[in-house]
Every structure is written in C-alpha cells, then in structure tokens.
Design a protein around this nucleic acid. Structure first.
Lengths: 119, 119
DNA sequence: CATTTCTACAACCATATGGTTGCACGTTAC
DNA sequence: GTAACGTGCAACCATATGGTTGTAGAAATG
C-alpha cells in the first residue's frame, strides 16, 4: 500500500515542469542522465537532482550501462497516481448525485424521493 | 488552456496530506474554514493557508455565507489533473506497444534488426 | 452598546527546494 | 598511462514552504 508520504512525494515530483518533461522523455525511451541534461538550460547537477526526486517518488529507476546511467519509467507509479485522482473524482460524483436527490425532493415537496426537477 | 505554472500549482496543491484531506471533505460537502480547521492539530491560520493553496490551484473556491466562508470544490480542475496523468500513461502504453513490435520482429527474424546481441 | 465568532493578514522562524560551483571517482577512448 | 566523459556528492545561496503568534475587521448574538 501507499503511505501518505509516498503520495506526497509522488505529487511533489510531478509539481515541476522540468521533472514532468524528464518523465515524458523517460516514458518514450531510455536516456542517460547527461543526455537528458543536454535539453535543459541548467547545470548537469540540477538535472541530476530532478532525476533523484523522480526516483525517490518511484516514478523512474536508474540502471547502469557502462559508464552511463539509464533513466527508465516505472509505469505502476503513474497508474497509482491516476487512481488516486479517480478516487477523489468519484467522491465528487457521489456528491453531485446527492445534490440531485435533494433538488428532486424540494421540487415535488415530497418527503421520500419522487419525481424529477424540471430543468 | 493550462499553462505549465498552472499544472505546477495543481500538483503542488495535491502534494500535502492535510490539503488532500481538506479536498476530500470539500468534495463531499460544504464546510467553513473554521469547521475544517477543527479537524487538524494545527492553528486556524495554517489551515487557512492550506485552503489558499488549494484555491490558487483552482481546486476549490470560497463563497461567503454570512460571517463564514464556505469551501467548495472545483470539479473541472480535478478532471484536468486526471487527464494529465492519463496523457503520460498513454505515452507509456505506446512505448510498450513499440517494444512489443520490436520483440515480434526479432522473434520472427524480420529484416529490421537481425539477430540477438547475446553479449 | 459589548461580546463572541469567523475571517484576513502580517511578521516571524525553521526547514525544504531549486539552483549553482567544485571536486572525486569509475569508465571509455587514445 | 593520459585524457575525456558520465556520474555522485558536498557546500553554498536565494527563495519557497509550512508552521507559529498576534492584531484587526466584519458579522451574529447578548
């Protein structure tokens, strides 16, 4: 299961444009850290830190190949993040349903739940 | 459309357990800021700040009712966040499909990439 | 009116974050 | 071996974040 701090790290990792871009690149193919760093107007060390944040959030993993480190994605973490948002969305849908029910009651003045609200 | 900083703010707002809890409560019903604050072991001002972060991310809106301020959810922002994650997930699925294709070619001895490098 | 409640906001503090530079180390190439 | 490359890590800096307390205003209540 995911602890709350795991979820913190997950969203925290996604809350930066550079990291999201790194993630997109890592998703579509394998890149070394230096290859990734070449795309951004910042130092190698800065990109290295961003990759570390993604790694701590279990969104990517690094595997050695010779002297370079390949950054690859962890698909399960992405799926879990989406599930979390879906949970919140489901809650909201239930709320909408409850409000619809209330409106229906008020429209007909009936105690139970009869009839539809017009418009 | 969403700017990159909008997305930053969105994920940033979700990267805190207290804020996620506030969001869940706001999704299931309307609460004033002080009602929300009663649930957490921190000062009213701290909760007020958390609500402000959610508001800046367009995840909730505040509406006055007398002397209290009701916190309500913005469902469209939640849906947009989920869509963003789905986009990344889709990218990954495409990558998996591409890898599957490569494996299929190799298995049949297709011309593109002949033979295995069994180092 | 005075009091209480809910809110807003400023000042402050500790820590986290995002960036930098510099240096050390393993690996590849010459 | 030497040089170049890719990486890891530490030190440092500016700013953002998450919390506190205190003060002040607007709205309900006596």
């Amino acid at each position: 299961m995911l602890s709350e701090t795991d979820v913190d790290r997950l969203f925290q990792a996604l809350a930066d444009a550079t990291r999201r871009d790194i993630l997109r690149r890592a998703v579509t193919g394998e890149h070394s850290v230096s290859q990734l760093a070449a795309h951004y107007a910042m130092s190698f060390a800065a990109v290295q830190k961003h990759v570390a944040v993604l790694e701590r959030a279990s969104l990517v993993t690094k595997t050695r190949r010779g002297r370079e480190q390949l950054v690859t994605t962890d698909p399960t973490a992405l799926a879990r993040a989406r599930e979390l948002l879906e949970q919140v969305e489901d809650l909201w849908r239930h709320r909408v349903a409850a409000i619809d029910d209330l409106l229906a009651e008020e429209a007909t003045g009936a105690p139970g739940r009869t009839g539809h609200p017009q418009h």
